[in-house]
Design a protein around this nucleic acid. Structure first.
Lengths: 232, 232
DNA sequence: TACTGCCGTTAAAAAAAGTTAACCTATTTA
DNA sequence: TAAATAGGTTAACTTTTTTTAACGGCAGTA
């Protein structure tokens, strides 16, 4: 399986079911559709899903029962109910069987997507958020973004200010590739203006000075575009 | 404050507002009611909440704007919108300003409660456990907030004043992440002013002195933003 | 080759942060 | 009750960081 988020959709109306499935796939998710509760449970047990979207009123086995069975084997999997039942009592039963959300039909597919995203943000955010690299090898040099420190193999040590560190980090993330002026200005200065561009030039000068510690390192200008950090 | 869950409710209709507040209190929550966006933001900055329930259409400042400002200082706090706007576009804007849920009026108080519980079930487990932690490991050091004591492995012991302890606690809760000046000033000094900012600087100096007991610990300044406590 | 807009550098100004000490205020102690 | 103490704020001054200004050079184009 890919690294996409896997959604199990159980919906007995084949039209609505495949419509939702197509939509979720178009939005970049893996989405498996099952058309009744038994098949849904079987699929869940065999697969590895990140979220379940369950219709409530289904033949053979209703969504609430299915949810309880699913929760029996995985008590943390997010579950959303999709249903025409808008009665208060039904909603309450839905939440009591462990729902994370409860959508009453008709709903827009966009709203479903938003609600799925809102839940996933909470449940899978914790693991995948901190992808940001904070530590870079630059030829002979060694750049620690958090400590804002540039260290050479000998006893060269250069403390950086926060703007210097921000800019060097961006350059490092685009090593041997163009860092567009506008990108850097918007990320660091939050605004692409004439004066901020002059300010950025001043920082490029400062960084060039620091990087002289390794003569192989070079920040070259790409006229009209931005800068490129070369490491060879 | 007790160990109850703290809910910030911002709702400009005083009838609905106090009805909801009473209900939540009856259900065992702490629930603070504010009647406009500015008061809501101020309350949030000074308090310590586990969840926000915000009306969207309010005079002075609408709920979406308020949500963004709140998210600016706390990017994990759960937010629920309560609103009469049931348009698809509004819902989408709501979720895009970082909502966890979006309820359209009229809704039953029971449903609100269910939805709040569903969100808290996800969030309270993970990080907000740490939120009211009173005891922190800081490299070699050991910080006991209640006793206002900083202890090192050997015989280093440093008693802290209450302001020192408050500030260190905030820094600890944001370890390796920026603690915004305005956040600290509002939480500890209850007001973001020039003199309080000078006062805070004095306390940062004091804390840096104490933290020298472990040379790995460092409080770095993020120019124009705030401070970051580094532990590695 | 001359024009024009982008870059590079240095210096100065401005803004933010850091430090130290004096100064309140409330509480404890003599 | 006065003195001592502790916690906290204000003030004055220093240093660091960032922005602005000025000017000269270079690249791309007419």
């Amino acid at each position: 399986m890919s690294n996409k988020t896997n959604i199990l959709l159980v919906e007995d109306d084949p039209n609505l079911g495949s419509l939702l499935q197509e939509y979720m796939i178009a939005k970049g998710y893996n989405c498996q559709l099952e058309t009744d509760g038994d098949k849904g449970l079987k699929a869940f047990l065999q697969g590895s899903f990140d979220l379940c979207a369950l219709d409530v009123m289904m033949p053979i086995k209703d969504g609430f029962t299915l949810a309880k069975e699913i929760r029996n084997t995985d008590k943390n999997i997010p579950i959303i109910f999709l249903t025409a039942k808008s009665l208060k009592e039904d909603k309450i039963e839905g939440f009591q069987s462990g729902a994370d959300d409860y959508l009453t039909k008709p709903f827009s597919m966009e709203e479903l997507l938003m609600r799925i995203k809102a839940i996933l943000r909470r449940t899978q955010g914790s693991e995948s958020v901190q992808k940001d690299k904070k530590h870079f090898e630059l030829g002979e040099l060694n750049f620690d973004y958090d400590r804002r420190m540039l260290r050479g193999s000998e006893d060269y040590e250069q403390k950086l200010t926060s703007k210097e560190a921000d800019l060097l980090k961006l350059l490092c993330e685009n090593t041997n590739d163009v860092l567009e002026r506008s990108v850097a200005l918007n990320k660091i200065w939050k605004d692409d203006s004439y004066f901020n561009a002059r300010s950025m030039d001043v920082y490029i000068t400062k960084l060039r000075k620091y990087l002289k510690a390794d003569p192989k390192l070079e920040i070259v200008n790409m006229h009209g575009r931005g800068f490129k950090l070369l490491t060879n």
